[in-house]
Design a protein around this nucleic acid. Structure first.
Lengths: 225, 225
DNA sequence: ACCTGAACACCGTTCAAGT
DNA sequence: ACCTGAACACCGTTCAAGT
């Protein structure tokens, strides 16, 4: 009998952009950014590396398409009505955070200005910010502040996942916290003091607290126009 | 007579980590992240690629060291006394922003958790945040929010520089603004409306306004503990 | 039209051989 | 001890040759 593989029914018919992107996401999730190569992808799709170029222009486009499949739902979720604007912002932000948490390589893609997901995120947040009654002149700044914060957290998460490829996340937090606690007390008094909070904090709560902080700032601006 | 080169006096004596890192910064500034290879670096230093490994462990360490030379002064500048805490935060943030503006490849390095410059930035900002009288429980969140925002802006600047390798910055802003203005009015009403602000905004002012927003949020938290 | 896989022009890194 | 540069084990991408 034929050996059972993890992908018994691949290639019953031809390649397609969708099939290629799905395989890319599978590799990215399992092996990280460095694991995605056209040779590895061709192996998984039971073909040669050249075949992929008939459906995808290059690696950059493949990464954009892969990011799209992960963030498509997250960046449009705020259209749910009946929420306070602040809660709608938090809902989108958290959806993006959770998507990056489950697929850390997405975090590194957010900085790509060709990434449609970033425009959708900007749009989703911007609408809520406008609905909050923020003055016209402060709309761009307010939306940018929220978007840049989300991008920054995403970038860090992606980098942390890269650094902790073989350990798990809490182990990494413990080791970073330990490193901070051992810093020179004269040069790094603040970071040392805060090392414990770093170890004990919940990433998700912490992320939301940051969003709240920026929303509070936006509220303060709105009140003195 | 011998031909004049751009580096007539290189290699009068041996290699050193400093010389290697300086050459790396020179290449990074002139040709961007992709331009830095060990072969290119060896050419500039009039040696072979293997020689570099006697002074630098690998490419990652080289990038960390290169980032250090650019951010060393920026991340410690806040020790200037006599400033309001808010102004001290803005001074450090702006120093980092200007460093990234002058050396866009630095922006992509900020997410690296092994980057000592990030710890120094966190420390510098954290001290000022503590001096602002922020409650102990909110110190980590407040400092993280500011740091993540700076990291996010840095990541975007790095990506924009990569995307605009052959055009200049204002040209890029114009083309992004045009792309935004042409988005589907039903799907992207907010982004379309804001496209003009995107084109006309001053990056530096915009960045500082975002810092002000987060500082306002921190102030609001402090007032209701 | 779609696929194949060898080939091209690169990488980062190693290491025997030189001085 | 330091340097050299060929060699190794890869990349992304192209393209003649096949179906």
């Amino acid at each position: 009998m034929p050996p059972r593989t993890r992908h018994p029914r691949r290639r019953i018919d031809g390649l397609s952009p969708e099939r290629i992107v799905d395989a890319a996401v599978e590799i990215l999730d399992a092996e990280g950014e460095d694991g995605l190569t056209f040779r590895r992808l061709a192996d998984l799709l039971v073909t040669g590396p050249g075949a992929i170029y008939h459906h995808v222009a290059n690696k950059g486009e493949l990464l954009v398409a892969a990011t799209e499949t992960i963030l498509a739902s997250a960046t449009t979720v705020a259209n749910v009505d009946g929420l306070r604007e602040e809660d709608a912002v938090k809902t989108v932000a958290l959806a993006v955070f959770d998507a990056i948490d489950a697929h850390p390589w997405v975090g590194a893609q957010l900085a790509n200005p060709l990434q449609p997901a970033m425009v959708r995120l900007f749009e989703s947040i911007g609408r809520q910010v406008r609905a909050l009654g923020v003055p016209e002149a402060a709309l761009f700044t307010s939306t940018s502040a929220l978007t840049n914060y989300i991008l920054g957290v995403g970038g860090l998460n992606a980098a942390n996942a890269r650094a902790a490829e073989n350990t798990n996340r809490t182990e990494l937090l413990v080791s970073v916290s330990a490193a901070w606690a051992n810093l020179d007390p004269d040069e790094y008094p603040f970071t040392r003091d805060v090392a414990k909070q770093m170890r004990e904090h919940d990433d998700r709560t912490q992320f939301l607290d940051g969003i709240d902080l920026i929303l509070a700032g936006i509220g303060a601006l709105g009140r003195r126009p």
